[in-house]
Simulated assay, not measured.
Amino acid sequence: MPSQLRRSTARAHQLITEGERLLPTARDKTKGVFLAYRAARYLDQKQPETAAAAATQSLLMARRIGGPRCVSLVNDLLPRFKPYARADGVPKILQLAAAGRSTGSDGGRVHVPGIPVQAITFRASFEAVV
């Protein structure tokens, strides 16, 4: 990659990150989507540790605020993490995602080693059948 393009790309990523930080709490779903996209980009660049951190943050945020799109985006990335199963953070995101597919016996909370229970409480939505 030419050095000028590398600098432009680095600056673009810096501006995106700064913009994400400026988003109000009411825009957490947007932040979660951005984090999932960032995780995909890091996987494209063969940086699984950084990708796992972004995906974990996105998934935890999605579960906290009830963001199904974020959950779906992260779940779509999971097969891409499998070749990196031993990279730092990857087992954690795989386990966190798997735990989200089932609920625990304590009111919808699931337990994932190394992650506080409060961080992974998620909302189950139910549709009324008429």
Score class of each variant (00 low, 15 high):
residue 4 Q to M: 13
residue 4 Q to L: 13
residue 6 R to M: 13
residue 7 R to A: 14
residue 7 R to C: 09
residue 9 T to F: 15
residue 10 A to Y: 04
residue 11 R to V: 12
residue 14 Q to A: 13
residue 15 L to D: 07
residue 16 I to V: 15
residue 22 L to Y: 12
residue 23 L to V: 10
residue 23 L to E: 06
residue 23 L to I: 11
residue 25 T to E: 15
residue 26 A to H: 09
residue 27 R to M: 14
residue 27 R to V: 12
residue 27 R to F: 14
residue 27 R to H: 13
residue 28 D to Y: 09
residue 30 T to R: 13
residue 32 G to T: 10
residue 33 V to W: 05
residue 33 V to Q: 12
residue 34 F to I: 14
residue 37 Y to I: 05
residue 37 Y to K: 14
residue 39 A to T: 02
residue 41 R to K: 13
residue 41 R to M: 10
residue 41 R to Y: 09
residue 44 D to F: 06
residue 46 K to R: 08
residue 48 P to K: 00
residue 50 T to V: 15
residue 52 A to P: 02
residue 53 A to F: 01
residue 53 A to I: 01
residue 54 A to F: 02
residue 56 T to Y: 02
residue 56 T to E: 03
residue 58 S to F: 00
residue 59 L to N: 04
residue 60 L to M: 09
residue 61 M to F: 00
residue 62 A to M: 02
residue 64 R to V: 04
residue 66 G to M: 02
residue 67 G to H: 11
residue 67 G to R: 03
residue 70 C to L: 09
residue 71 V to D: 07
residue 74 V to C: 05
residue 75 N to I: 04
residue 75 N to L: 07
residue 76 D to R: 15
residue 76 D to P: 14
residue 78 L to C: 09
residue 79 P to H: 04
residue 80 R to K: 12
residue 80 R to E: 04
residue 81 F to W: 04
residue 86 R to F: 01
residue 87 A to I: 02
residue 88 D to V: 05
residue 89 G to Y: 01
residue 90 V to T: 03
residue 91 P to T: 04
residue 92 K to N: 04
residue 93 I to V: 12
residue 95 Q to K: 07
residue 95 Q to A: 13
residue 96 L to H: 03
residue 99 A to R: 06
residue 100 G to E: 01
residue 101 R to P: 00
residue 102 S to E: 08
residue 103 T to V: 09
residue 106 D to Y: 06
residue 106 D to T: 06
residue 107 G to E: 04
residue 109 R to S: 11
residue 109 R to H: 08
residue 111 H to E: 07
residue 113 P to G: 07
residue 114 G to F: 06
residue 114 G to A: 05
residue 117 V to K: 09
residue 119 A to E: 12
residue 120 I to M: 12
residue 121 T to Y: 03
residue 122 F to A: 12
residue 124 A to R: 15
residue 126 F to V: 15
residue 127 E to Y: 14
residue 128 A to P: 02
residue 128 A to Q: 13
residue 128 A to K: 13
residue 129 V to E: 12
residue 130 V to E: 11
